[in-house]
Design a binder for these strands. Sequence first.
DNA 1: TTATATTTGTCCGTATGTATG
DNA 2: ACATACATACGGACAAATATA
Lengths: 87, 87
Amino acid sequence: MAAREIDHRAPKPPYQQIAADLKKRISKGELEPGKPVPSEKELVELYGVARNTVRSALTLLRADGLVYTVPGRGTYVADRSAPAADE
Amino acid sequence: MAAREIDHRAPKPPYQQIAADLKKRISKGELEPGKPVPSEKELVELYGVARNTVRSALTLLRADGLVYTVPGRGTYVADRSAPAADE
DNA sequence: TTATATTTGTCCGTATGTATG
DNA sequence: ACATACATACGGACAAATATA
């Protein structure tokens, strides 16, 4: 998988572009429920941004309930049948 | 107002301690709805942490709908009658 | 138990951009 | 143009959780 392009001069900041890209990959089924999203380190290399930027993107996906994270293990695509609204 | 103490060795990380402290001050009425929370710069000096740490705390309060932020102006205590669940 | 590797969690310092007044 | 305040990003560091050897 080639590096995915991030436009640092686009109106949308990189962390939002990355979040949108990952959302698309999830909705397309490229990233399947229960399976891990690439590690932060891999996403850093994939998008060519800093780790904090990747983490900001993942924070958005978590807020949307699209993924969940297990410390020390990784971040996984959430199961649609278990929506995480709030609480 | 003396510096508010943050325990860097406590189980809760500083940004959570700060969020909890600000929540308490809001619930006590020390920080009133519609009125500004201290600026990030002031919170940095008050708690003796980095700006990013203060911002992490404010992000939690925003997620709880307790405060809202206006770029270039400041962060304000939300009005309880207008709860911001999501969207 | 200890050690090591991987991954996420937290924090710091700094730089630059955007919005407001 | 300037000052203030928040937004985003970079890079680096160490801690904590997990898994494996």
